[in-house]
């Protein structure tokens, strides 16, 4: 579905680090991804893999101790790593919207819900109060808030977590952005509410023809959402491809580990696989493949040299030495391949 020429956002070789007392923390070490018009990409990885930092760079909301070392974020002919606050101001909300991880703390606790939605319409789009209110109520209805006229005058503490996330989505949509970034939008919510929020995001994406960047550590969420998936580890993309390719033909040991550690309905007798060890200390990024130390399939070269991307198909690439022609044939873990077979059968 994605064609080469309709790229809307492109991140090229992005390096971001944070100043800390211990030294520079290399949070993002050369991330590349592209977003095509109308598609949803998912960025998947465990905590601290640099997913959130990458999208914060796109929004220009990195904390003050962050440094963009190199790389480009290309959007609408601009490099977002170089533009100043004034330009960013014209993009945030109006062109690129963001949905937060924690809806409980994302809303101003002492401001009425309605005002939090209309505020930007009145201040930035110079709407008058009645029009802004009309639009806000429309938005609230669109994101599934019952009785929006009543809810308009209420405060965040009178909303449940799921309802607050809907409000955050309504706020993000208020200025009609073309790109929507969802930074773990369901992490803080109940499982039952999660699926409804995901449905909602899918629905508004269709209705408004949005391009979505979806960030999550939960592969289960990705399956229903994303056209393409980027798997990140230790500040780098280690594997990317179309959704089916990542789920049915994963090639990187880290993707295998992630998929194996995800419970499904059939895992009653099997032991759930956990990834051994912890992510590396990013003040001193490891030499070679960052995942090598936790990788049971690691070879000598994994500790010495960083693997390049090996092409699996036109859309599917993975950075692991296992794909090198000289590497021994290494099949994915038995448990995982069984599970993939089951998933395929179920369709």
């Amino acid at each position: 579905m994605a064609e080469k020429n309709d790229i809307i956002l492109e991140v090229k070789d992005l390096h971001v680090s944070f100043k800390s007392y211990a030294g520079y923390v290399r949070a993002v070490r050369g991330v590349n991804f592209t977003l095509h018009k109308g598609e949803t990409i998912a960025i998947v990885g465990e905590s601290g893999s640099g997913k959130s930092v990458s999208v914060k760079t796109i929004m220009g909301i990195l904390s003050k101790n962050a440094v963009i070392d190199s790389g480009e974020v290309l959007y609408d002919g601009m490099d977002l790593t170089k533009v100043d606050e004034k330009v960013f101001h014209t993009l945030r909300g109006k062109r690129i919207g963001l949905i937060f991880q924690d809806p409980l703390s994302a809303l101003n606790p002492i401001m009425k819900i309605g005002k939090q939605i209309t505020e930007v319409l009145i201040l930035e789009q110079k709407m008058n109060k009645e029009d802004a209110k009309k639009k806000a109520i429309e938005l609230m209805r669109a994101v599934g808030i019952p009785q929006p006229e009543v809810r308009f005058d209420q405060y965040p503490f009178q909303f449940s977590g799921g309802m607050r996330q809907r409000i955050v989505i309504a706020i993000a949509l208020a200025s009609d952005p073309e790109i929507l970034i969802c930074d773990e939008p369901t992490t803080a919510l109940d499982v039952t509410v999660q699926s409804r929020i995901l449905e909602l995001i899918n629905k508004i994406k269709e209705e408004r023809n949005l391009s979505v960047i979806f960030i999550t550590h939960d592969l289960g969420v990705v399956a229903n959402m994303a056209d393409r998936v980027y798997v990140m580890y230790a500040g780098k993309v280690v594997e990317f491809g179309e959704s089916e390719e990542i789920f049915f033909e994963p090639a990187h040991p880290y993707t295998w580990a992630l998929l194996s550690s995800m419970p499904d309905l059939e895992t009653k007798d099997e032991k759930l696989m956990a990834i051994p060890g912890t992510p590396p200390n990013m003040v001193y990024p490891p030499k070679g493949d960052a995942f090598a130390a936790r990788n049971q399939y690691a070879m000598q070269i994994d500790f010495e040299e960083e693997p390049p991307f090996f092409k699996i198909s036109d859309t599917h690439y993975a950075a692991t030495w296992l794909l090198h022609p000289d590497a021994p044939e290494t099949p994915m873990p038995e448990q995982l391949s069984q599970r993939i077979k089951r998933m395929k059968e179920e369709g």
Partner: peptide, 10 residues
């Protein structure tokens, strides 16, 4: 919520 205020376009 300050970050949200910024990302929504203020």
């Amino acid at each position: 919520f300050m970050t949200l205020a910024k990302t929504k376009g203020l």
